[in-house]
Amino acid sequence: MNVAVLAIQGAFVEHENMLRRLGVTCVELRGASDLRKPFDALVLPGGESTVQGKLLRELGMSDDIKQRIADGMPVLATCAGLILLADRVVNDPRTYLRTLPIVVRRNAYGRQLGSFRTLGDVHGIDAHGKGAFPMEFIRAPYVEEVGDDVEVLAKIDTHVVAVRYHNQVATAFHPELTGDTRVHELFLDMIEK
């Protein structure tokens, strides 16, 4: 099983390390030519969405990735990745892939002094072990509105911080920065189906 990780900016190595721990082979996507390599699923990592979004477009990767997601390729998106997938960003005119019918707020918890760590329940990971999931929010977004068929996987206070929509799983927090592999396992299960 090959999983592609968008490797143009941000914390992509952390995702690769976690996927390798789970026995997966990773393919780094740095440009359009990398899209010709075979892969079964895709990870959009944390980083700066403005940088990643601009580069996706200018490196000629957007349309291909968008099409694959529309065709059902499983995708896991964290933090900036969630913004790349979102249909609309409430406090920013820039949008990117728009495959996920949600409305998000960027930097929803403020600047770095608003970053925090907490424990929360993620729906659907119970099969992989019990207990709350450690969530790292780094200048994180949250989801303000979800469209039809979007399943809410996690909420912190009143805000939605993880969703699933058919083949797309997106979190406002960073499972790749913890030692807990359950969100990645949930994602990999979608490939095997």
Binding site: I8, A11, F12, G46, Q112, I138
Partner: peptide
């Protein structure tokens, strides 16, 4: 300790930039 960890992690998000 948590704040320090979060601060190191913000730097991780800047990588490749």
């Amino acid at each position: 300790r948590t704040q320090y960890q979060l601060n190191k992690e913000l730097a991780q998000m800047l990588k490749g930039g």
